[in-house]
Design a protein around this nucleic acid. Structure first.
Lengths: 194, 194
DNA sequence: GTTTTTGAACTGACCAGTCAGTTCAAAGTA
DNA sequence: TACTTTGAACTGACTGGTCAGTTCAAAAAC
């Protein structure tokens, strides 16, 4: 990667970060391109040099964020037996959300919305992340480590959603609580699966 | 209540319904007052005759919706022993969300946002609803029906958040699943509390 | 020399909020 | 009963402002 590419990558990264924060705070529509450029310390023209439109920027942002999460999930479960793997997923999700809090808030706000232009993209990305969880849970059911009557799809999306709310709630309303503590609560709450 | 009052009440109700649906679908900023008026079959001026501003309409909407939920919560737990009371809360929340799906979606989208003008209002309302849960959980801890080491505040807000995501997820992604089924999953997931 | 960024200027669509005017149920009057 | 008045409720065209998106010449970075 040469200097140019690196610089551009950096600009895009700054735009992602600025956009993610603003959209998490205010929502997509309330966030203006001027706001984003300002917070990223970049000229408005730069936004349009790097992204086709405000919507395109947002969609790429979603892809980027979920991509990272999915990678973390895969890394977390690698080689672990089912029950430990589920616990590892919970841990990975918490750590991810602590690290990318704004992105998680944004997801929480947009994930169950209908009728928005990027809805389809988001549903697909959601599938991608929940897919990893589902594979793990399925393996647990197959190996007999998890109850056979467990509905894998439902349990997986519930697991994902619960992790999301509990973690975001933690960061917004009780940021001082240590992460281990939250992890414990989460695991004891979802005991049937983990 | 005379004809005038009745009529006005009716108009306000229609505005609430229109606004709640549109905001759940698109978010607050993306929803225009013209949209709301159109869907409520009312002139734009009527919106401003009945509410001071778009934001005021939204705030009153939040108050109205959370008020109903809180009432349902109180009615559900009345006279029940702790563990049954917690289960009754879960049931009440599910039923409420099935009945006012759009409102629940809207809550899910807005509850963990920061920096919005109505944020303070929402935090207060949230306290109100979670308060009822907390009272119930506290009673359970006091009576020894629930573990003494349970952090009541945390458990209550987790309970609330989890009910919200799981129910909305159900309505958005698996609407055909029967409510009893969802209730079962929820209760078995939150077994430590319920 | 090429790529990337800058920032200012512009356009056209859109939107919150306003207000002068209309409607009509109910209260008042004879 | 029949007529008149009142004002609450509603209407929708209009205004002032904002914003996404475009363009571009010039500068900066590589």
């Amino acid at each position: 990667m040469d200097g140019r590419t690196r610089r551009r990558e950096d600009t895009r990264q700054r735009l992602y970060e600025a956009a993610v924060e603003l959209i998490a705070e205010q929502g997509f529509s309330a966030t203006t391109v001027d706001d984003i450029a300002l917070r990223a310390h970049v000229a408005k023209g730069t936004v349009y040099y790097n992204f086709a439109s405000k919507t395109a920027l947002f969609e790429e942002l979603l892809r980027h964020g979920i991509g990272l999460l999915t990678d973390d999930f895969r890394a977390a479960v690698a080689g672990l037996p089912p029950r430990e793997a589920v616990a590892a997923l919970v841990r990975a999700q918490l750590q991810y959300i602590r690290r990318y809090r704004a992105f998680a808030q944004l997801l929480l706000s947009e994930m169950w919305r209908t009728n928005r232009e990027w809805q389809q993209t988001l549903v697909l990305l959601r599938e991608q992340a929940i897919g990893v969880i589902a594979e793990t849970v399925q393996a647990g059911v197959d190996s007999g480590d998890l109850p056979a009557d467990l509905d894998v799809r439902v349990a997986s999306s519930a697991l994902f959603g619960i992790g999301l709310v509990v973690a975001v709630d933690w960061l917004v309303f009780q940021p001082d609580r240590p992460i281990e503590d939250v992890e414990q609560s989460l695991l004891s709450i979802v005991r049937r699966v983990a």
